[in-house]
Design a protein around this nucleic acid. Sequence first.
DNA 1: GCCCGCCTGGCAGTCACTGCCAATCGGACA
DNA 2: TGTCCGATTGGCAGTGACTGCCAGGCGGGC
Lengths: 198, 198
Amino acid sequence: MGTTATQPSLWDRSRQAVVASIFETAMRLFAEQGYEATTIAQIAKEAGISQRSLFRYFGTKEDIVCGEQEEHGELLRAAVEAQPAAATPWEALRAGFEALMDAHGSPEQLLEITTLIFDTPSLRARYTQKRLRWQEAVLPAVTDRMAAGEGPVSEVRAAAVVATVFACVDAATEAWVRGGGRSDLAALYDEALAAVRG
Amino acid sequence: MGTTATQPSLWDRSRQAVVASIFETAMRLFAEQGYEATTIAQIAKEAGISQRSLFRYFGTKEDIVCGEQEEHGELLRAAVEAQPAAATPWEALRAGFEALMDAHGSPEQLLEITTLIFDTPSLRARYTQKRLRWQEAVLPAVTDRMAAGEGPVSEVRAAAVVATVFACVDAATEAWVRGGGRSDLAALYDEALAAVRG
DNA sequence: GCCCGCCTGGCAGTCACTGCCAATCGGACA
DNA sequence: TGTCCGATTGGCAGTGACTGCCAGGCGGGC
């Protein structure tokens, strides 16, 4: 364990450094010229890496921005499943998102990334696509929770609850972004859900 | 008006014929080989048209499948706004979707298209993107309706209601597709919404 | 000092999509 | 009827994202 913890970490460390370098270069260029106007060739050049290698770190141009979402899906699933059995699906999912927001480093960077995603159609499409995977990931936990409360649950009912929570997160996030991040995201989410369930 | 009604209709008729021809050719090839494996060049060749002209009819490959969604958005908006003032947002939106489903010709073709979209990631992403425009289109009507019931409404609340309805439509549609279209889509939608609001 | 993996870069190719230009087609009008 | 004109078409060359392939380099283990 001691060797496997240091040796791969050397590779991983350099790998993380390259990833971060590409990411920062790309975000700077996106901010300067816009996402569509920035080419992969330009990012690679300014990051001092070959185009071919860039694609080995980020499978697609969109993944440079949306890439982190992958791991966050796992985090969300784990957080939801870790909630006490007594919690309703709504409470469990809310707690899951809370955990997700805690995991983020600087709120400024989160706002920057989220704004870019919501302002760029192709990025938003990709983001929505990834969120579909999140929905699939938390579905079993939600199904179980609903079944505990009211007996056997049809597929649609659980899927609808999950989809609704994500829809409210989306509405809240959009309002948050449009307001320049000045309001509280969690409060917006609560307001959104209250409008639906109240 | 008389001339403008017959003359463009000749052009439009031939245009519609070409569109239909491309669409049918493409759907056949998609069914035979899958969406990704079918190239624009192949569709153009088999439809007896140049690649360049194909792109004049359908701006993107995805639009061959998702293209109709554009006009349906208008239909939905009109139907929602045409609902009586006494109807709640939920009732108005439900009626809107009912109108939309009535507008579709054969249910078999609807099922075929929808299945293709839900089974193909890039198509589903594009579809979701277009649905976002629908959401923006019906948002004013829903905001007005909510304001009538409870006074001034914040942006988030109305957006959340709209997003939730679309999320339930999505969940219902997915269940409908996964079940091979054997269940009733409207019933699935009602079940989905009941799970959320009940 | 040598060998062996892995990483990297470059190259050529595919595919969706776009701008440009010339040919053509069909109706309008003299 | 013949001619003109606007719209449609097709081909061509180019861009940009992305992929497979192959050769070279850099590390660490023997």
